[in-house]
């Protein structure tokens, strides 16, 4: 047997691709596809949920929330708050919901629009409010969510999208990346909702009182009232725009629509009165 000692050849069994370039290609490709799926899926889900009739919505979700929050029954301001809600709703002629108000036992001032026409406000909100105008804006904001069907959009969209992506990408390292991207894409949408709801709320306040003084007092009570850089970066991915920005936007809207920004504040009617 003729035999020549020789070194094994290189570069055949190993593809000469730089691992960093492969990383960039893969990540960019997967992120790109995820974004497209999130956008397209979101578009179709929106269209579907916009068509859900309010009565059907109330029937489906009506009893769904009753056990979810710890309710603070017999809050002294609950009745007056519900009455204010009804009063505000009269300025929304197309209102298809039978609105109800519930008080939930949280200390932080907050309010939620829940599918089925339920507005939930926290104990903290009712305790800390200084004027009726302030509450009117908050309730009007929640009515704004109902008007734009935001509460439904948030629910259906987020849920089904996360589910679909989890099924598609149920893998190892690939798991976190698409979900994270989808999550961030989601939050931008929610911020637009918040802005729309702010605008609707302001309009309702104007129609009820003839001016918008006191409407943005609520923002001064939120944790991010003094926004610093960390908050701003956090807000880029957070669902709510920073309070300062919201106040600015409301001021701009008031000027644009010529709502008077000065006026007498209506004190809140306590049950003790």
């Amino acid at each position: 047997m003729e035999w020549e000692p020789r070194d094994p050849p290189e570069g055949i069994n190993v593809t000469p691709t730089h691992p960093l370039s492969e990383l960039v290609t893969l990540v960019a490709g997967i992120v790109g596809v995820t974004v497209v799926i999130a956008l397209v899926g979101g578009f179709f889900l929106d269209a579907a949920f916009q068509r859900l009739p309010p009565r059907l919505e109330t029937r489906i979700f009506g009893s769904f929330w009753s056990g979810l929050f710890e309710e603070a029954t017999d809050h002294p301001r609950a009745a007056a708050a519900e009455e204010l809600l009804d009063r505000l709703a009269t300025h929304w002629p197309d209102n298809p919901y039978e609105l109800r108000l519930r008080v939930v036992a949280f200390e932080e001032p907050n309010a939620f629009a829940i599918p089925g026409g339920l507005v939930a406000v926290t104990e903290g909100l009712l305790d800390e409010l200084e004027s009726e105008n302030e509450l009117a804006f908050v309730l009007g904001h929640e009515l704004g969510h109902f008007e734009g069907r935001h509460h439904l959009r948030g629910l259906g969209r987020g849920l089904i999208l996360q589910l679909g992506l989890a099924v598609l990408f149920g893998g190892s390292a690939g798991e976190t990346l698409p979900l994270l991207v989808a999550g961030i894409a989601e939050t931008r949408f929610l911020r637009d909702h918040e802005r729309e709801a702010d605008r609707f709320g302001l309009a309702l306040v104007y129609r009820e009182y003839g001016h918008v003084a006191g409407a943005d007092d609520f923002f001064g009570k939120l944790p991010d009232a003094d926004a610093d850089l960390a908050d701003r970066i956090g807000s880029w991915v957070a669902s709510h725009p920073v309070s300062e920005d919201r106040i600015e936007a409301l001021d701009a809207l008031a000027i644009e629509r010529r709502y008077p920004r000065e006026g007498a504040l209506t004190p809140f009617a306590d049950a003790s009165d």
Binding site: T15, L23, I30
Partner: peptide, 17 residues
Amino acid sequence: FKRFLAGLRAIVGGRVK
């Protein structure tokens, strides 16, 4: 790092370089 790249390949397929 290699495992991460392979994980991404597990989604899209192709040679696990």
